[in-house]
Design a protein around this nucleic acid. Structure first.
Lengths: 118, 118
DNA sequence: ACAATAGGGGAAATATTTATCCCTATGCAA
DNA sequence: TTGCATAGGGATAAATATTTCCCCTATTGT
């Protein structure tokens, strides 16, 4: 995959959750899966700004971290469905809280983010 | 600073909060500032794994996003104190929830993260 | 024969983020 | 007088993340 040069920090809860939740699209993936968008193509439509490749990679990582499971139906054309694990489900309220704060403060955030153009 | 090539996504709450909270150390910075560690050197001691440079940069971004304020005392040697803004304070419960989930699931997270060595 | 569908992945190029190194300045203590 | 603490920043290198491009699977329909 990729050999890390800088050791992971796994000291506190924030470090740990960061390891499984960093990745530009991971929270959205979990969120949309929870909402019933189980198939890869659905997820890709929900998140059109992400490249297909990266969604696959992040899905695989989420699976490796036991937050989702992948079910492959042996049919043609292929059919795949992702679901949250029980573990993954416990993360939904947290993601909900995060998104809610963002929504509640959307205007102000828009302003401060676009101000310094970055 | 840095000229972005890929446009920002600012569609939903998750995008927005991501813009202000991504950055390896930002959540910890906010957290520690809230705990009363106001001076840069204190923060650096609290987060020894981060390079000094990056902490400064991320602090500056947090300031630009109106989550913290910076007070410079005109003394020598220099003294600087950061504080959360009212806006920043509203983020603390969210960060708390995130860290708490990480702490609660620390063992399991340790396991799944280190398993695939990355 | 060929396109369309649905899912996936290797390799290389880009983008972005962090780290490293070196330099500024002042006052105090050993 | 050297060293340390305090705060900060430029330049550059390295690490990591994401995107782009192209290819592969197998079947069904035209």
């Amino acid at each position: 995959m990729y050999e890390r040069k800088i050791p992971l920090n796994l000291n506190c809860g924030l470090d740990l959750i960061g390891e499984v939740l960093y990745g530009k699209w991971k929270m959205r993936l979990l969120w949309f899966i929870e909402q019933g968008n189980k198939r890869p193509s659905e997820l890709q439509r929900k998140i059109p700004d992400a490249s297909r490749r990266v969604l696959n990679m992040q899905l695989k990582e989420l699976e490796g971290h036991e937050l989702i499971t992948k079910k492959i139906y042996p049919v043609v054309p292929p059919k795949v469905e992702y679901s949250l694990t029980d573990f993954g489900k416990t993360l939904i309220p947290v993601i909900g809280a995060i998104g809610e704060w963002g929504d509640m403060n959307a205007e102000r955030l828009q302003k401060v983010i676009t101000r310094d153009a970055r």
